[in-house]
Design a protein around this nucleic acid. Sequence first.
DNA 1: AACGGCAGCAACCGCGAGTAC
DNA 2: AGTACTCGCGGTTGCTGCCGT
Length: 369
Amino acid sequence: MGRSPCCEKVGLKKGPWASEEDQKLLDYIEKHGHGSWRALPAKAGLQRCGKSCRLRWTNYLRPDIKRGKFSLQEEQTIIQLHALLGNRWSAIATHLPQRTDNEIKNYWNTHLKKRLAKMGIDPVTHKLKSDALCSGSGHSKGANSLSHMAQWESARLEAEARLGRESKLVSYPIQQQLSTPFPAQLISKNPTQPALPPCLDVLKAWQRVWSKSMSAGIFPIAGDDLESPTSTLNFSENALPIQTIAFNESTKTAALDFAKSSVTCEGGFTKEVRQMAELKERSDDAMVLQDMTYTMESAWFEDSFRDGNENMPLSYIMEGFTNILAYSCDGQNSSMAGENLDNGENNKNYWNSILNLLNASSSAGSPVF
DNA sequence: AACGGCAGCAACCGCGAGTAC
DNA sequence: AGTACTCGCGGTTGCTGCCGT
């Protein structure tokens, strides 16, 4: 049978677009919309294949595209989402308003990947490169839980991406998500804020910890990499109000409800939840909802509260997988901490580091919930 | 000034999923 | 149910401009 070519190859122009071609394409889409891409070039008077027109439009001519340098915040978002989603650029792009998947992909390949490598972090796994050696034998329960968390979060983010694609009317760009407070069941200080899916706050928390960790020098990241050479924005310009939560019993309960709500919330996520449950039915190794709930409840909250960290902010409990995967694994942590610690000690040390970070910020007068 | 190497980025290619017939 | 077609995605290529020699 064979695959039919997307268009007649003979006689069609390839390569860079001329400004006249851009104008023709713009004019046509403005008047008629793109409709069928295959039919568009002939109608618009372009000697291009439909695919080329579509790419030119989606990656360059679309009016809602922001061009120019990536902000540090955008960089962090890309890194964090890449840790969860891998090379699913379109899914990542749905969380970066006005950025195309192609642009993000290029930026990752030309800047971020190299920078992570330079920092000793495997850009594929987002672990310290030397951690690959210790992945075989000593997986702690916590590491497994975190792996489950990553799977769960990945599936959920994909669901968001899918929803974003399906609905042109409603989108949840991450910059907006990150500027919203925790869900109403946890914090209801700002009733004017639109209600957004609670689980999206994980990214907000993640971003905060990431930036704080870097600025506090807790994690072994080269100092000259902290400042993005391509950033035009001072991060403080975009800095979100620091919000911490005092974990009394009621907020613990609310936090658990929040965690559960991420599993049971209505909308597009439920599809992925069902899919994952179905997956479990077919495979004993797959994660089930109970596992996810366990992960969220026990791995996050047990670890957080076990040592009496009553003031552990929820945001830090939902810390980013990037840091956890990179720094909580086995003996490699000891090089970071300068001590020889076992896994439990490492985890404890990790959380203590986070707590110390919190305390430092609290004493500096950061606003509290 | 000329040249070569390199980085950045726009564009292309091939594949897979979804859909219409 | 099978086939053809469209579209979107991710990997890759190749052009362009910058920089060092």
